[in-house]
């Protein structure tokens, strides 16, 4: 699980996908590709983005939901909790 999580986070395009899903949760593949191209100048193919999403899904950071004929992608940040549980953030520093 750790390996999947860190692998998923260790790529700039995948981190940008998470950023965009935090901005608006529940996007089609088309919307994600449009945002990456138009807002971030990323030229990855739709196929490549689809593979990035599969890696994020494997790590539990993205879930897909079928609604009728459409498929939406949702962000799930809960796997990140394992990171601060493993290496706790100093409470005093976090408050400052």
């Amino acid at each position: 699980m750790d390996a999947d999580l860190f692998k998923a986070l260790g790529d700039a395009t995948r981190r940008t996908i998470l950023d965009e899903l935090v901005e608006r949760d529940g996007q089609t593949l088309f919307e994600i590709c449009g945002r990456l191209t138009m807002k971030h100048g990323l030229t990855s193919s739709r196929q490549a983005i689809s593979q990035h999403l599969a890696v994020l899904e494997e790590a539990g950071l993205v879930h897909t939901r079928r609604e009728g004929r459409y498929k939406f992608h949702h962000v799930d940040t809960s796997p990140l909790r394992a990171i601060v549980e493993r290496w706790p953030i100093d409470a005093e520093e976090a408050d400052s």
Binding site: F30, G34, K39, F72
Partner: peptide, 23 residues
């Protein structure tokens, strides 16, 4: 709509379902 209005810089887009099998 499968995509709400989205500001993509030079253009704002949205995507709707035409009920005839197309977006």
């Amino acid at each position: 709509f499968t995509q709400e209005p989205t500001d993509l810089g030079p253009v704002v887009t949205a995507v709707l379902d035409d009920t005839c099998g197309n977006l």
